[in-house]
Every structure is written in structure tokens, then in C-alpha cells.
Write a protein that binds this DNA or RNA. Structure first.
Lengths: 132, 132, 132, 132
DNA sequence: GTGGTCTAGACCACG
DNA sequence: GTGGTCTAGACCACT
């Protein structure tokens, strides 16, 4: 598909706009969105995700400030030149495999998605602290 | 240590009270907090984390409603009998090893903690969807 | 006065949020707002300027991203440490005197405020182009 | 040159059509465009400035309504008789000198073009307020 | 039809 | 009472 599906969890606690921004950053880093690719329109994406157009516009604006997107009035929104190179495919695959494994383990131990993600964020910060 | 260290990221977007509640649930599941163990006082924990005492009290109340904590007026707060058995040590160790590995891979690929946790949450939901 | 008056021209063509952001940046650079000073509340300033609270909030958020303001949930908004040192008083005075002079000349020649500011912006860019 | 260079800053916040209209008015007042002089064609100017032809056409129409331009179908666009007399050369030179001076001061103090023009507009309005 | 700005007002997190 | 998020909807600038 040309425009990869973007999912949002409106009841996740994390603000919708942060989820959406992060999802787009990830699609760019994964190479699913390449420099110059057109983004969905503000209103179109809003309808697709069941959120308000202002929320999408806010995300696009912030990503433009980051240099990741380029907003052209009257034309559309595109992945900007400043988006940087995507991850290497091999790296991405390795992370995907590792993710599938830990998800499997966590499910076996009775954790849910939120618990696992929190666990990993906490552990990340602990590891960094130890390394210092 | 009597009370395991709890970390909160006030600038993480996720509400403080959700982070705190989740952190305590995890400590119980990991077996670091056992049934009957005393929790830090509301005020003490609030000071330690640099957040408002009301926020801590709210979390303790919610966890009491869940049956995870037991608030004894005038005495203190304790891990309740309803907390359930902790995870098996082997499971926990396996998840920790898997976490360290994926954190390593993600850092190597230039991701940050938030990106990785979002990636895993998204992947979890995708996997579940595929399995259906 | 503790909180310097901020003025907005809602019919100026330039978006209100840009005017407001620039006005605040200038007050900081002029030294009228110092590091640690409290800003008006979002809602209070909105009422004072006759604009919507969301517009003020957007400006505060953008200035926080710039490192100029510090927003504390439940507390208030303050001039941040990253605001940098204000201009020297002598420089400021010299610019004020020069401004008064050119305003006088422009008024004598029948220009209005918008024309003069456009003239200066254009000339600035021409000068820079020549210098290159 | 036949048609003096016109500059537009598409990222300046101020609508392009306002910038363009103001720039033309100024060229007439400065005497760089005299009564009867031909204006660039709509399409030519649009291409030169990298904006849409509709936008240029709209500006020409507005300036015609003001009596500044005269559109002759099939022939071209010209500076109209109603354009009025240009500023005195001495006045213009004095303003230019004053502008160069204040630009110099502002650059020395670390301001940018937008900041200076906003500063002057604000000061203009303050001065008028004081004089009343 | 695209993005941009602004409003009015609801509800939430936090102190 | 403070800032934060989100909605619904209006109107504008531009292609």
C-alpha cells in the first residue's frame, strides 16, 4: 500500500497527538515513508483515525518544526528532505525479531502491552543509569 | 532496601499517576514487593518523587480498590493479600534478558526509550491482530 | 508595573499568535521580563487581550519549545533559565532613539506603521544580500 | 531595469498577497515605478516570485480598485494616473539612511528582521498613544 | 480542496 | 485555579 496504515489508541492514556507523532516518526525511520512521499491530508487522516482535524494539524506542524515534514499550503504535506536516512533493514529486522520474542515471553507471563512497554522504558532508564 | 526505588518521568507525556500505579503493580508482580510489605508513606513518597501528595494518595486509593494495597488508617499502607502470586523467577529473568537485548539493539539503531516502547506496543497489537 | 502590558493588533494581517510570541520574546530581550518571572496565566492573558485561551496556550507552548518559558502544570508559567541574557541597556536605548527618528521621518512622508515596517524588513533583506 | 525586483518571503507569516501589494505600493511611492510604466505580466511575475498566478492577479485587481494600477485587456497592466506623486527624493533618502542605521544597530544587538519590524510597529503605536 | 488560524467550550491532570 | 488535550466548526490564504 502507498500510505501505510496508522493506528491510534484513544484510550491509552498517552495523548493522541504524541502517539500519532511518534507513529509517523517511526514510519519514516523504518523507511516505510520516504523523502518526498505525500502524507495523508490533514482532514483525511483525521477522519480515518476518528480524531479531530486540529489534532492532526498540530502533529503535522510539530513534525514540520522538527524538519521531518514539509507543509505546502494549498498543495499538501510531504516527507521533508531533513528526514534523514531510514534504519538499515537488517537492524529493523533484528529489532522486530527481538520484539516478537519479548512479546511472547511477556504474554506467557500474563503481562499486557502497556505493562511490557512500561517495563522496557523503566529498564532502559535503569540501564543507562548503571552505565554512567 | 526496604522500599525499592520508584522512578517517575514527569516529562514523559504519560500522566504521573498512571506511571506510578503501573510501577507499583510491576514491583508486586516481580516479587520485589511481597504480601504484607509496608509501602512508603504518602508524604514520604511524594517528596521522594517530587510530586504532590494528593497524586500519591490517589494512586494508593486506586490500588486499594484493585485489591493490591491495604490502607490502615493511622498505621500505614501495605501490600494486600489480594495481590496474587508474583511471576516465576525464571520468567522474570527471561524477560529481563530479552529486554536488555532489545534495548541494546534499539540503542544501536538510534532509537530512544519512548520510541522503543511505542514500537513494542504497536507490534504487540499488530501481532494480536494477525493471530485472530 | 510587574507584568508589562502586551498589545495585539487583531486586524494586522499577521496572525495573532505570531504577534504575541514576538512580543513576549521582545519583552524578554529588553529585560522587562527576567528569568524566573511569572507570566500571566493562560486564561488571564487571553481575557486581557480579548483572544482565545487556546491561542495563548499555543504561544506559551511554542516558547517553551524554544526554551524561553517554563510551563508548570497546576502552578503557572515562568520565564525559563534558557532565556538568555537581555540586551544591554545602552543598545536598547540607541535602537529606541533610532526608531523614534525613523518613525518621525516616515510619518512626515505620509507612511503608516505597516508600510514602514515592511520597508524596513525589505531593506534589511536587501542589505544582507548586498553584504554577501 | 524595466521592472524593479520584487521580493516575497513565503515563510514570513504575512500573507503573500499583502506583501506583494504593499511592495508595489512602496515602489510607486518611492518613484521607482512612475505613472504609465508597464507592470510585469501576471504570469511572468508569478513565475518570477514562485507563487500562483491567481495570487498576482488578485493583487493587480485590488490595486486597480485602489486606483494605483490600470489593467488594459489584451495589452497589459500599467501604473495609473491616480497613483499620486511619489515621495520627495530627499525624504526617501533620509528614511533610507535612518533605516540603514537602525538595521545596523539591531543586527549588532542580535535582532532579526522580523523582530525589528515588530519592534518598530509596536513603538509607532505607543508613540501615537502617548501623543494623544 | 489543501493547509492555517481562531473560537467556544468540554473534560482531565495536578497543586 | 493552573496548564493540557480534544472537539466542532467557522473563516481565510492559496493552488
Amino acid at each position: 500500500m502507498n500510505a501505510p496504515a496508522i493506528q491510534i489508541d484513544k484510550s491509552a492514556g498517552l495523548p493522541v497527538y504524541l502517539q500519532l507523532a511518534e507513529r509517523i516518526r517511526l514510519l519514516v525511520r523504518e523507511g516505510e515513508l520516504k523523502i518526498g512521499d505525500p502524507m495523508p491530508t490533514v482532514r483525511g487522516l483525521a477522519v480515518e483515525l476518528g480524531i479531530n482535524a486540529n489534532t492532526v494539524a498540530r502533529v503535522y506542524r510539530e513534525l514540520q518544526a522538527e524538519g521531518l515534514l514539509r507543509l505546502e499550503r494549498g498543495v499538501g504535506t510531504f516527507v521533508a528532505e531533513g528526514a534523514g536516512a531510514p534504519m538499515k533493514r537488517a537492524d529493523l529486522r533484528a529489532i522486530e525479531r527481538a520484539a516478537d520474542r519479548i512479546i511472547d515471553l511477556a504474554q506467557g507471563a500474563g503481562m499486557n502491552a502497556f505493562e511490557l512497554s512500561q517495563f522496557i522504558e523503566t529498564r532502559w532508564k535503569e540501564v543507562r543509569r548503571v552505565k554512567r
